[in-house]
Amino acid sequence: MQTDTKILAHEFEYLTPNTLNEALDMLDRYQDKNAKILAGGTDLLVKMKTINLKPDYIINIKNIQEINFITYNDDGLKIGAVTSLSQVEKSKEVKAKYSALYEAIKSMAAIAVRNMGTIAGNLCNASPAADTAPPLIAYGAEVKLANKRGERAVPVEEFLTGPGKTVISSNELLTQLNIPVLDENTGSSFLKIGRVKADIAKINIAVYLERKNNVCKSCKIVFGSVAKTPIRVKGAEDILRGQQLTSDVLTKVAEKASEEIKPITDIRSTAEYRHEIAKVMVEKAVNLAWERAGD
């Protein structure tokens, strides 16, 4: 593959909507014309440089202030589409309440990339290894997709459909993320294995559970980088639900989770390693979430 990462050789029409309506108008007009959304650019520009992605139109949504926010209230945590990963990481509520999301963002790339990149972009890029996806799925978060005619809400779990694939239509824009308020006695955790700290995940995991009277009342265990999309290991969740956290239960949960994932061997790791390390990660992540849930 011949690549030149010093320049962007491909030419395109550059559009900068200042309002959401303008952006949706543009998406409607250019939906059949190979238009791409630019938010952070840390995936889009890399793909344009290295894998021959050649959009005819680039719609830069960074100037749309309506979708640059992060708020927390009784309704939960809401994050706008152009809010940078750094802004999310610096939110007091995210750090205090949404541990798995906080840890996932902290694990991503490096400061300069997080100053540019967005959660919305991480989701729309739809990498099976996307670090923000497992925590968002574990929390039951949903994305808001808007087009000129209206909007719809889609759970993150259903939003991602395959490597680079989502349910978003070419005239739609992901405008915001909604993460529900987390109940009392809940805890979450995120773990990731990479070669170095700034790496893309060989495998990552998020756990969110509710602990009551020393029993796991409900839980979600989500793995990334082990299938075409981040996946929940529902069989393992079933084993944990209703149980006290004993080492016996934990071993069964880990064995089941390792059976349920469908990893492949690729440049980052082997299927065999991913199956093995998954067990260790489930045990660690569940323990951590359990401790955080308190009682």
């Binding site: 990462t5 010093k6 962007l8 550059y14 900068t16 630019l38 650019g41 840390t42 520009l45 890399v46 680039i58 830069n60 960074k62 750094s86 400061i111 300069a112 990339v113 100053n115 540019m116």
Partner: peptide, 20 residues
């Protein structure tokens, strides 16, 4: 790396038109 509005970003992944 350069500072954009005081915060580090990567100039190789930033379009010049974007810093208008």
């Amino acid at each position: 790396t350069v500072l954009l509005e005081g915060r580090p970003v990567l100039s190789c992944l930033t379009l010049a038109v974007d810093v208008n």
